[in-house]
């Protein structure tokens, strides 16, 4: 309770500071355009009127926070969730490929980690490629994956999920390799004195020991999955999803729409990370972890 209160005050202070700076910045960012418009319309507003004008533009360079909130509220709660104007609809589209990609990436990551831990040759041959795979910009790979798969008739959810999986398997591999190798050397000796086979060591020792590592890397992986899904939506011709919404809005300089899509994306990411963290906390508590 105390720690929550200790956290709330500094966090709110920072948010208040950011919003204050934002409101000031919005005036200056939007002022040049507003001055031009006023000159053309031959209006000379007072300073206060001018400030209000910079906060009420239809396509401001930097929208004021309340404009974004209003737009976000409208396109989330006042539009039917099945409508193409609804952020719920677009978030849902992105979420589905995020979750599928996350599931694929996690399973793939675990399998690769198990292989690396048990086969020394895989450790030497796989690991450099896995690291290299993450140094290639995802923006370069995503369109190729989409185009190549579209050429063989695979479109829609799968290509986007694959890009998500491409980004999310990496943290899982790294975390799981570390987790599966975490049992003390002496514990492995102890297991040998019980004549334990590799399968027994794996299930009774390595797997339980790796659980905290798995959830820590899944938190990173699910955020990466969302990024992958959004990037995967960009080259699809902006049909649906948060990525499509971002791209469409930027086409028409609908900055307020862009910002509210951005917020939708951030909220989905935060929600997913918190969810994975909660599941991890629950599982670890069931496994007898010391409450922190």
């Amino acid at each position: 309770m105390d720690s929550a209160r200790e956290k709330i005050i500094p966090v709110t202070a920072i948010v208040a500071l950011i919003i204050a700076v934002w409101y000031v910045a919005a005036i200056f960012m939007n002022a040049p355009v507003q001055r031009d418009m006023n000159k053309r319309a031959d209006i000379t507003p007072t300073t206060l009127e001018f400030v209000v004008q910079t906060y009420t533009q239809a396509k401001p360079i930097l929208p004021a926070p309340h404009q974004i909130v209003a737009n976000f509220y409208k396109s989330t709660f006042e539009v039917k969730p099945t409508s193409r104007r609804s952020l719920v609809y677009h978030s849902g589209v992105t979420l589905s490929s995020t979750l599928l990609g996350f599931a694929l990436g996690t399973v793939l990551g675990i399998l690769i980690a198990v292989g690396i831990v048990h086969v020394p040759a895989l450790d030497r041959s796989f690991m450099p490629w896995i690291v290299a795979s993450q140094t290639i910009p995802i923006l370069a790979i995503a369109p190729m994956v989409i185009v190549v798969l579209a050429a063989v008739g695979v479109t829609g959810l799968i290509p986007k999920a694959l890009i998500s999986a491409y980004l999310s398997f990496f943290p899982v591999v790294v975390g799981m390799v570390k987790g599966l190798r975490s049992p003390d050397f002496l514990l492995l000796d102890l297991m040998r004195t019980y004549n334990a086979g590799r399968a027994t060591v794996f299930w009774k020792l390595r797997v339980p020991a790796s659980v905290p590592f798995l959830f820590a890397s899944m938190k990173v992986a699910i955020a990466a999955s969302l990024v992958g899904a959004i990037v995967g939506e960009l080259p699809t011709g902006a049909v649906a999803g948060i990525g499509a919404k971002l791209l469409g809005a930027s086409y028409y300089s609908q900055t307020i729409d862009m910002w509210s899509a951005l917020i939708a994306g951030s909220l989905v990411a935060a929600l997913l990370v918190v969810l994975v963290g909660a599941v991890g906390g629950f599982v670890e508590k069931r496994m007898g972890a010391r409450p922190s």
């Binding site: 003390d184 002496l186 514990l187 102890l190 020792l205 007898g288 972890a289």
Partner: peptide
């Protein structure tokens, strides 16, 4: 065998 650390499995 008993080692210097107890090496109990935390789970």
């Amino acid at each position: 065998i008993v080692f210097q650390s107890a090496l109990l499995l935390p789970w």
